[in-house]
Design a protein around this nucleic acid. Structure first.
Lengths: 128, 128
DNA sequence: GGAGTATTTAACTTGACGGTTAATTAACCC
DNA sequence: GGGTTAATTAACCGTCAAGTTAAATACTCC
């Protein structure tokens, strides 16, 4: 079995599954009901639901022959935390880099020619 | 090609790639350097980097024969937004459901036996 | 130019994934 | 019980992702 982060990200990586979640965000639904807008077979939906359930993004109950799905916020909360933590670190790192680059440019403008050969500058300079 | 959300989530769905990002969060690194802690071959790393680059989670430059990778915050910002939007909707929906269930329980405790056989209606009952 | 290092490309294997159809199970209604 | 509907399981197929090794490319240094 896999770690929960992998489980959740993989589950969210499929557009059909995200669409299912979007659907479920408007309320509980049955398999048949979920299959309707997607033009794929019921077994396919069942599989998607299993993935989502396994990632604890949804949970299911029973109501007669139906098995309604509903959204389960906890998993998404976890993901939100992860993403946000990293985002913070990255932005910070990015700012540092930014500052560093500015410094670099300053000193480069002062010692321009020396770096010319040592530096492969032509390719390096033309970032994108 | 795929939509950016799918691209990003798939990229993040792999534990090796997340580990690479964690590594990069501490600063730029080369392929060789990134491969070290992972016990997988350099070409494998190259592939992972391509995936990450394709998802715009990292970008790369050239420095002599090295090709250092650095983190690119924009993509993660996008994901953060998506996750957070959904999370909000879900929590809200969850609260509604919660309230609804509480109501159900109250009314059920008043009309217990009648719903025993016939309660199929509740499936649609809670909608919109 | 030639040796050496870093990285990528090519070709291939393997396994998982998303889909299908057909058959099965579970519940309802009459 | 028999028929109907909802959903799942089973068996299968094609594609793609992740890994490998071996060869090619890109650059540095002498």
């Amino acid at each position: 079995m896999q770690d929960t982060l992998t489980l959740t990200f993989s589950a969210l990586a499929d557009p059909t599954r995200r669409a299912i979640l979007a659907q479920l965000a408007r309320g509980e639904a049955t398999v048949k009901n979920l299959a309707k807008p997607f033009a794929i077979s019921a077994p396919a939906i069942t599989k998607h639901l299993k993935v989502l359930e396994n990632a604890r993004l949804i949970s299911r109950s029973r109501d007669a022959q139906f098995r309604p799905c509903r959204i389960e916020p906890a998993a998404l909360r976890e993901i939100a935390t992860w993403v946000d933590d990293y985002r913070q670190i990255w932005e910070q790192r990015f700012d540092q880099l930014d500052a560093y680059l500015k410094l670099q440019m300053q000193s480069k403008s002062r010692t321009q020619k020396k770096s010319e050969t040592k530096k492969k500058g032509s390719k390096n300079g033309g970032e994108k």
